[in-house]
Amino acid sequence: MSAVAAPRGAHTSRPKPKAPASDRAKAENRLGQRLVAPAVILMVLVTAYPMLQALYLSLFKYRLTTPDDRQFVGLGNYATVLTDSLFWRDTFNTVLIMVVTVAVELVIGFVFAMVMHRIVFARGAIRTAILIPYGIITVVSAFAWQFTFSLNNGWVNSAFAWLPGISPDTNWFGGYGTSMFAIMISEIWKTTPFMSLLLLAGLSQVSEDMIEAAKVDGATWWQRLRRVILPNMRAAIMVAVLFRALDAFRIFDNIFVMTKGAQGTASSSFLTYTQVIEQFQLGLGSALSVLLFLTVLLIAFGIVKLFRVDLAQARGEG
């Protein structure tokens, strides 16, 4: 992130004679490629190859229970999926979860980052506290919040009974809205630390002198935030939003544990999983996989365009 990172020291970028390629440069080129080869092969083998296979399988009517009945249907699976209301409902859920959790996390995460940035005491304690949700298993977080909202054994109903709409027998997992709320709380709790740490890194790159100068010029707290701090953190915010949005879009663990998709709370990932693993619909499931992959690409592209940041350039790898 050259926009926010400290300039790279002279020692890290040795001058390289460009042309003509000397033996030394050729050897360096070869060594570099050999060193990255194992990692690249592994990454491509486990993702690109299966993805191509999914693309191929998505053109067949193919159930694992009757493998001999495999039959070419062209884009038939895609037509089936795209005309199914279940697919659109689950896509809507996923987008809803993504938008709401990322927006909430951006606000909470920023407040956390501000506190961590300004705090002068107990820095270690606060870092430890914030890293616990980050490190905890998502399934554990899902159980913790499922039990929190549980009808018979949760503490939320008794603790918040004074709020309108909550009574000792509020069944959180009995309806769509409240189930989604519980799922989102678990997701937000687990992933806000990641967001706030990225924002903290961005915040610490904003020059204190600039903020001080704005203060001297009479800028209010709100003006300093909007005109000085946030614009200078744009790159960090963009990275945080991109990563969190794509991560939230893949939501699966929380839904699997908390509702198993009941009350219409399934996500795109959950739908794909149930088609492949529970229904053995490999053809249809592969079509869903391909669509999910394309959606992720689309979202990534959209966010990068929206924030107008070239990631490769931003990473200082021009």
């Binding site: 993805m51 399988l57 490999l282 499931g285 990534a300 990631l311």
Partner: peptide, 21 residues
């Protein structure tokens, strides 16, 4: 670096079917 970035964003569930197979 681009491959690494793409894989960091990859929807893992897309691989469940083909990897299972």
């Amino acid at each position: 670096l681009s491959i690494a970035l793409a894989i960091a964003m990859f929807p893992v569930v897309s691989l469940v079917g083909p990897l299972f197979d």
